[in-house]
Amino acid sequence: MTETPIADPRIAVHRTRLADGRELIYFDDADTVLPASRAVDERDLGPRPTTAEMRQDVLTGEWISIAAARQNRVVLPPAELDPLAPQSPGNPSEIPSRYDVAVFENRSPSFGPELAAADAAAPAGARASLAELRRVGLERRLPSIGRCEVVCFSPDHEGSFGTQTVSRARTVIEAWAHRTAELSELPGVQQVFPFENRGREIGVTLGHPHGQIYAYPYVTPRTERLLASIDAYGPGFFADLLHRERTGPRVVLTGEHWTAFVPFAARWPIEVHLLPHRHVPDLAATTLDERDELATLYRRLLRGVDALYDTPTPYIAAWHQAPVHERRDEVRLMLQLTSPRRGADKLKYLAGSEAAMGAWVGDVPPEAQAEALRAAIEGAAE
């Protein structure tokens, strides 16, 4: 594979392998104080788990990965046994060296490590594969090919994307773009999804500041529904959506290249969407200027969300990107930040109507939430 270019040449990339063969990539801050050399992972690790199986839900046509190896994940370990911290004599963690940002293949992945046959990377093969994946039948099974990666934002034990410096936030964005570009080239990958889960209320099992990237072997259900909406609306879907929101009452933060807003029909008590002003299908297609502004703007947004209450807010930050092989001129990159927090000590739980039927009821008027977020962002400490 040809080395993926970096938009900011000051951010250095170092590749290596973990003891069981998984890839580990270090991304150094532009103002790093770390040496270029990296330690070798000398752990004695067992074999990697076999690739999981995915089964089709005939009622919806959706694919469900049955990944039993995920039962072995570490759950809320003490700080001295943090598996995402740099290795130490008493902590044989996943990362052998001190780092700024580190990305490695998940030890217990939902997809992969197996990939499709190499010829599936060709566009014609990808289209045929998508048609087969969208076919519905009884008891259909396929291997859960793809890749799952962990993105460590910092060597510190606690924090999130919003607690990082602007320089570190910029390095993480470069890592997301780099990994999106490379994962999109893997045989059989149909969509790449960077995300951050923050807070125990969301189900986070590691307090270490980190996110993940999934490279799926299919187009996800949420994106399939988006494609249907684009078809129903017609040309100019995202341009019209952004124009309407930018001229409306729900904008919470805007810059030269990005705008964040509470959507018109927000499902969650806290929900913010962030769109680029220019049509780009994914993070890999963003420019240096867009990434630079995003590092500042996105960090401000997250700090504002945290400033709504006296304690940090749990959230899911989901980067929705266009499918790898189709409709990239129609689907625009979008961040969707959602939180179940509907008060200082209240959470929204998905009960019968929402969990069983997908029929949502919003608890907070979107305009009121936008007003609260604007005030929180304005008052958030840097």
Rank of each mutant, 00 (worst) to 15 (best):
E354N: 10
S144T: 01
D82T: 01
T165S: 09
E3D: 14
F264Q: 14
D28S: 08
P217F: 08
A351F: 13
A351G: 15
P340G: 02
A215T: 02
M334F: 09
F261Q: 14
P366S: 07
L242R: 15
E94N: 09
A126T: 03
V172R: 02
R374F: 11
A266L: 11
V262N: 14
E114Y: 05
D156Y: 06
Q190S: 11
H279W: 07
A117W: 03
L186P: 08
A355Y: 05
R107S: 13
D240L: 12
G46V: 03
Q71G: 14
G343F: 02
V150Y: 00
L45Q: 06
Y349H: 14
T163W: 02
R70Q: 11
A118C: 00
S108Q: 15
A68R: 07
S65W: 06
M1V: 07
V361L: 13
S97R: 09
I316F: 06
E185H: 00
H157A: 05
C148G: 01
D306Y: 08
T165F: 10
H325E: 00
D100C: 15
L347M: 09
D310R: 12
T286P: 10
V324M: 00
C148Q: 04
Q56I: 03
R225K: 15
R327K: 02
R267F: 13
Y298G: 10
Q56Y: 05
A344L: 06
L350F: 05
L242G: 12
L350N: 15
D240V: 11
I377P: 04
L275G: 08
E196Y: 01
L241F: 13
Y26V: 05
P49I: 04
L288H: 11
L130E: 02
A351R: 12
E367N: 12
T4A: 12
L274T: 15
D100I: 15
S93Q: 00
R328K: 04
V33C: 07
D231C: 04
P92D: 14
A175F: 05
E174P: 04
I6G: 06
A67M: 08
W268N: 12
D363G: 11
E371Y: 09
T51S: 04
V172K: 03
L115C: 04
V58Q: 11
H273P: 10
T296S: 14
P187W: 08
W319R: 13
E149N: 01
C148E: 01
F104V: 00
R73M: 08
E23L: 00
P323M: 00
A52F: 01
L274W: 14
P365Q: 04
S88V: 08
M1T: 03
L275K: 10
R170P: 05
C152S: 12
R73C: 12
T16I: 12
G199V: 02
G137F: 00
S229H: 10
I64G: 13
I11G: 07
R374T: 05
A181S: 05
A239G: 09
T2P: 13
R48N: 02
I145R: 04
R244P: 12
I173C: 09
T296H: 15
Y349C: 11
E105M: 11
P83C: 00
V262I: 09
F161I: 01
H243D: 15
E326F: 07
L333C: 04
